[in-house]
């Protein structure tokens, strides 16, 4: 039982010294404002950002998550961006004007979004060469989980990949009908983001040396089980080149698959070919780091799903 003296406990200091509250946004602490800003959609953040300097710096210090961000600069005189929030709300921005002014204006906007945005999915389609120099000068990071680079030329692709955050989970490049003739596999493989990404693919790649070079990089880096690389090409020779370069490591081979050992006894690398029975279709390949104890009966015999991922044109219907 408590004594009488214990009955008179002291009021903690925090209770007695605080001021009487006021009721105005400007009287809120930065911490509370940030909490409220965190609940706002992008459009409202932009509006609040325009009210005063103090609000602007607060907004700019806060990251915002987007489910998806799409950026297109497909011609000299037009730029489009669409941002989808986690709640499914859509924010669109379309800019037009003279080539030089437009590129400056558009890239200022892009830089801002990349600075504050954290993307689940990010698609960049920059056709116009004027953005290349701007990308090279951009020193910030692009924070995204799944990145899709479409119709960007070789230097732009490399430039963007180098700016991705380290924990990017997939990098997908689709240069369109023109392909990516200028990038050698070594240029890709020298980029740390490519070395560490769990999934990446190159659509319409004209080099036939990518498979064995990726396999060698994985062997050198002792890459994780599950690491996957996909490529499709209209040129012959990729499968043969892989066989020749990896002949000393072959565990098993067939028309469809080659399995090789790595320096780590726990890990093998499996190369699979996907066949599409349509005239003029390219050759599809998937390369994966697998567990060395994986049985052949566990192989995935349905190549449609993984082909669809790199080339939705086929098997999408």
């Amino acid at each position: 039982m408590s004594s009488d003296s214990e009955n008179s406990f002291e009021i903690p200091e925090k209770l007695s010294i605080d001021p009487i509250y006021k009721t105005n946004w400007c009287d809120m602490s930065a911490e509370i404002k940030r909490e409220c800003i965190g609940k706002m959609e992008f459009k409202e953040r932009l509006s609040l950002r325009c009210t005063a300097k103090a609000e602007r710096s607060l907004i700019d210090s806060q990251k915002i998550k987007f489910h998806k961000g799409e950026f297109w600069a497909e011609s000299d005189d037009r730029f489009d961006a669409v941002l989808y929030s986690e709640n499914g709300n859509k924010f669109s921005k379309c800019l037009d004007g003279g080539p030089k002014t437009l590129a400056n204006k558009a890239f200022e906007f892009v830089k801002y979004i990349w600075k504050v945005g954290v993307f689940e999915n990010l698609q960049i389609s920059f056709f116009v060469p004027v953005y290349e120099a701007k990308l090279k000068d951009y020193t910030g990071e692009i924070s995204a989980k799944n990145v899709y680079l479409e119709y960007c030329d070789a230097d732009m692709v490399l430039s963007i990949i180098q700016k991705l955050n380290d924990d990017v989970e997939s990098i997908m490049t689709n240069p369109g009908l023109g392909g990516l003739p200028d990038i050698d596999s070594d240029e890709f493989l020298a980029i740390p983001q490519i070395q560490n990404v769990p999934y990446w693919h190159i659509a319409n790649y004209s080099k036939t040396n990518s498979l064995h070079k990726v396999a060698q990089m994985w062997i050198d880096k002792n890459s994780k089980i599950g690491s996957t690389f996909q490529v499709y090409t209209f040129d012959d020779g990729s499968f043969q080149e892989f066989l020749e370069h990896c002949k000393d490591r072959i565990v098993s081979k067939s028309k469809k698959r080659v399995r090789i050992r790595t320096n780590n006894p726990d890990r093998h690398i499996l190369l699979e070919r996907g066949f599409v029975r349509i005239e003029g279709a390219p050759q599809y390949f998937r390369l994966m780091v697998i567990h060395s104890e994986m049985e052949e009966s566990k192989y995935d015999n349905n190549c449609k799903a993984w082909i669809r991922k790199i080339d939705p044109e086929y098997y999408n219907v």
Binding site: N24, W25, C26, M40, E41, K43, E44, S47, L48, R49, C50, T51, A52, K53, E55
Partner: peptide, 18 residues
């Protein structure tokens, strides 16, 4: 402030201009 312009937000929340 959903759907509000900067001016409207400034008015609703009594944010002084710079």
């Amino acid at each position: 402030v959903k759907g509000k312009s900067p001016e409207e937000i400034r008015e609703i929340w009594m944010i002084p201009t710079d």
